[in-house]
């Protein structure tokens, strides 16, 4: 499964470690929320970076105390039709100021890339190779956005108000 990060297909340096499995001695790992919360000291104990796979039915509040030290948070789309992780992503980015890697996992498909990016995801475990190849192209689909999110894109309203100000300034 290709990983797209910062707009490009890249090698995934993180290893998904299943709950029962032994942790590798070094290297970057992604572990479940349950495993992490049972042993948050793991952050300082291992040489590699730690990321958490956070389920979409648990409030992200429980993760907030650790955000500064986490290298990655992976949110889950069990199917692309289940949109809970969009809210979690926005809360992490916009309310809790999380600025590490925010990864989309699960059924991650081309036609949701723009929504995910706007909600704050910057890494994508893409289900299909063809979709990963089309990432850059797909991100260019839209140039107009109505809603303000934390993604820095100007909204239609911002642009209209700017236009208005520049028009009135020019008079």
């Amino acid at each position: 499964m290709p990983l797209v990060k910062n707009g490009r297909i890249t090698t995934d340096l993180f290893v998904h470690v299943a709950d029962g499995a032994e942790l590798p001695g070094d290297g970057d790992i992604l572990i479940s929320a349950e495993r992490f919360l049972a042993d948050p000291d793991i952050l300082s104990r291992r040489p590699g970076k730690t990321g958490v796979v956070w389920p979409n039915n648990r409030a992200v509040d429980d993760l907030v105390p650790y955000l500064e030290r986490l290298a990655a948070v992976a949110l889950v789309f069990p199917t692309f039709r289940d949109g809970r992780a969009y809210s979690q992503a926005r809360l992490l980015r916009e309310r809790h100021g999380y600025d590490g890697e925010l990864r989309a996992t699960g059924q991650v498909l081309r036609d949701q890339f723009v929504f995910m990016s706007r909600a704050g995801f910057d890494a994508f475990e893409v289900k299909k190779d063809a979709d990963a190849d089309a990432f850059a192209e797909t991100m260019k689909r839209y140039s107009v956005f109505y809603q303000p999110t934390g993604d820095g894109r100007l909204t239609a309203l911002n642009r209209r108000m700017q236009l208005r100000h520049s028009e009135s300034a020019g008079q």
Binding site: F80, R81, G83, R90, M116, A119, Y142, Q147, T149, L157
Partner: peptide, 13 residues
Amino acid sequence: RQHTTLHPEFSFL
């Protein structure tokens, strides 16, 4: 209408 169109958080309610 504008705010709800292609809303990045609420398109998969």
